[in-house]
Design a binder for these strands. Structure first.
Lengths: 187, 187
DNA sequence: CGCGCGATTGAGTAATTTCAAATCTAGTGG
DNA sequence: CCACTAGATTTGAAATTACTCAATCGCGCG
């Protein structure tokens, strides 16, 4: 579990044993059964979560109870309500486990301390946001330029793993399309 | 011009005169007349631009020549193709001036040097991406949950300045709606 | 005055949603 | 091993939303 995290971080920046020990001491771990909340709308968001194993979703629930998926997270992905986390405000979204999951998490205070004391980790997190920003920008571009069918094909091409684990209803909600429409695309 | 930049940075982190002098030495300036490109699709993106004055747009042009606005930028905003900039790859989008504009810009190398030598600036840029990330996430949420009318109203509420300077055609393109549809909403 | 651009309006069409019903599937208990 | 159920998926049909293409309007500028 700790070795997985180390591997994850060392994709971006290499660490000595002592450094990793120090990094790891800032994390805590949590196990979730299926359908358990990590974050609920209306609550403060203490932590950012890194997925050791399992599968989760972050979603907004609109006025008519409909879920809109902001992101999924599987092994090696981060998930939280980033806005609420970094601005210390209340969440507007929910995050819960689709499958039984295990996560490592770090509080904002600990993350800041860690970044101040270990410059490499500041770089690590900066690169994570940079890439996250790029990903969101590309998703916006897709939402602006493509129809249901094109979005589906693009996701299938870029994130085939998702189709292994997420129901079609969830995929539809991620793509911003009704499940019925999605169901009519295949063929 | 330099004092405006200093003010911009000091909204996030305060600087001594010497520090600002040092920061400012990493920037260059450029003046643009109306309809002049800052970035063109297919080219590398050396710089990130901060707007001193004027009004610009960043947009993708799709297969049928249609423009899709990714972002606007006016006084005090940053604009570039962030993906191409940080990954040193070729741009997929265009950035050009809607009005005559003046910008200050910094290359990626200079930005990295600056961040390494002045930790405060690393924080400054980190906070900028953080906020940018949050903004994009919220835009995705809007695209997923709202129709043309609701998007228009939300933008009018959150960014009234835009309606002063951007044509309705551009606003429509930013919202992901045809100009005719947008035109039919009002009233 | 007339040109040109942006905005609006109209009419027909295409894409997507909604609501409802039918079908399929995996897991459970008998 | 089979019947049964809950949930997910698909299908159907009608309604809605938004798009496209075309024509017209409105206004600022030379």
């Amino acid at each position: 579990m700790s070795s997985q995290l180390r591997k994850h971080i060392e994709k971006i920046t290499s660490l000595t044993d002592e450094e990793f020990e120090f990094v790891f001491s800032h994390f805590h771990s949590k196990k979730l059964r299926k359908h358990q909340y990590l974050i609920e709308a209306g609550e403060y968001v203490e932590n950012s979560y890194w997925v050791v194993s399992g599968f989760l979703k972050a979603y907004y629930v609109d006025a008519s109870e409909k879920e809109h998926i902001l992101s999924f997270a599987m092994e090696d992905w981060w998930i939280t309500d980033y806005e609420a986390y970094i601005t210390r405000t209340m969440s507007r979204i929910f995050v819960d486990s689709i499958e039984a999951s295990e996560v490592l998490y770090i509080s904002l205070d600990d993350r800041e301390k860690l970044c101040n004391e270990l410059h490499k980790m500041a770089n690590f997190f900066r690169e994570k946001v940079d890439m996250g920003y790029v990903g969101l920008q590309n998703r916006i571009l897709t939402l602006l330029t493509t129809n249901a069918k094109e979005r589906y094909d693009e996701l299938l091409l870029k994130n085939p793993e998702l189709f292994q684990r997420a129901s079609k209803t969830l995929i539809a909600s991620y793509l911003g399309v009704s499940r019925e429409t999605l169901s009519r695309l295949n063929g």
